[in-house]
Amino acid sequence: MLHIVVCIKQVPDSREIRIDPVTNTLIRQGVPSIVNFYDLHGLEEALRIKDELGACVTVVTMGPPPAEKSLKECISLGADRAVLVTDRKFAGADTLATSYVLAKTLEKVAEEFGAIDMVFCGKQTLDGDTGQVGPGIACRLDLEQLTYVGKVIHVDPEKRRVRVERKLEDGIEVVETSFPVLITALKELNKVRRAPMPGMIRAARFKPTVWTTNDFPDIEISKIGLKGSPTIVSKTWVPEVRKVNGEKIAGVAPEQIAEQLMEKLWGSELAQKLGWA
């Protein structure tokens, strides 16, 4: 049976986030958490493949203990298994350190629960907002990598091939590759289902597998968390914009306003630049 892993991240709801002006880190306290919505589209696609071809779906997250809630949400939707990788030593990770820990996690998932055929990640997270973790994992595990996937056209478990549509700025690329593959999901990929009642009941009692640094005997401490992160936030600021406070055009009738406006524009330098005059 196919084994599909979905990497999900619990993220603070974007509208409520602030940055601590002293430490320049995100203040996460008091901010409601949600499953990064691109990741839910990755999960949905894994579940569709499961519905169609049969598959075992493992959900993985690296995060603080409360991220268990997000894993339970994935279980309620139909995931078979969930792994929470959590340790204070993982904190402060940038994309390089995150992909290192997730790659280690996936190796361990494969060892304990069976070889992995497909991995789904979201296109990007709402907080990190980089889209780099997926390619990072693929690179470390030497998986084929298909980013920005808007449609999975065909999965062939015999030939171990998958054909997808990648959505790029200038068009749609139809591309095919072999397992094991890592796919990053766009929201066009599918419509996320609602949790069915039995799923919700299962999730309520569900306890994810929890791994800490102790469960990874060969993990290099210098490559994880803050220490393992090459990028550093040096400062944050509020962007400033030029204010011109130009003239107001008022009038009774819209036609009058339009005429006044055009009279001004037509007489201006702009009209010359645009070749109107």
């Binding site: 986030i17 995100l26 090459p230 990028t231 936030v233 400062k235 944050t236 600021w237 509020v238 962007p239």
Partner: peptide, 16 residues
């Protein structure tokens, strides 16, 4: 642009 309203962040990479 950083993940926070009205914020920009400067990112450095010193060690690599």
């Amino acid at each position: 642009p950083a993940f926070s309203e009205k914020m920009m962040a400067t990112i450095l990479c010193k060690q690599y």
